[in-house]
Amino acid sequence: MTASDKSASDKYRERHQSKPYSRRRAAARAAWLQGSLSLLVSLFFVLPLLFMLLGAFKQQREVFLGSFIPEQWVWGNFLEAWNGAPFGRYFFNSLLVSIIVTVSVVLTSSLAAFAFSRMQFFGKGLLFILALGPLMIPGDVLLIPNFITIRQFGWQNSYPALIVPFLASAFGIFLLRQAFLKTSQELEDASRIDGATPLQFLFRILMPVNAPALSALSVLTFLGIWNALVWPYIAISKDEFRTVQVGLASFTNLEGSNVPVVLAATTLVILPVMVVYIFAQKWFIDSAASSGLKG
């Protein structure tokens, strides 16, 4: 701390102490204002979810009628939703696919980011552009050609169709390269002196040191795959391999849907992620924040 800094914060403290009473009242008022504003804003974000939950408990005939609180709590809606589609299987599929893709993306991104951040080689600039290019290419544009590729590999209606196209991520490479670049060169020199191979350095030092960035990448990748809709919808038409999000679509019906059951199914689909989120909220937010996206 420099001298001038010290004097500034001293002055600050003096000012605070000079009018203790009104200052404290102003601070209390500000806190109260912030508190009520926070409550209001929270309400805006939570209200649609709350109504989904309340709607899921209603009788079909009172969804849009009667009080906002269900007159009768129809737990049967959840039972019907659960039995309406093989949700157990869907959850298993989503979980399996999301986990494999997440692990793979972390691995492939780490490897590529390591090369881009720590090595000098011929054609590096061009290869880097190739590695980041997918960021700019709208993925849905590639649906049909990719579907044809999947068919040619004989992968239609199988796990590889849901997994293989997503095994690497341009965003992941970008993110981890940023993080790896900030890690000091001395660590690498030290480990080389200890006789570690580049791979050992990557897995034993570079990746653990950058755990926040890796966990951010994991969270975002997992969410992206778990919530994906269009590709799984196109690539899969058998229940055995269908994912949760596609399964959710089977509750709407051309001639009118059973809205409470649809809402119950939606609640079931949201629930596991929300439970994980509520328990790991701090980790989620810290991860997203430390994604190295701060520029």
Partner: peptide
């Protein structure tokens, strides 16, 4: 391959 979900799908 059919195109009706919900109750009609059943």
């Amino acid at each position: 391959l059919y195109g009706l979900g919900g109750e009609l799908g059943k």
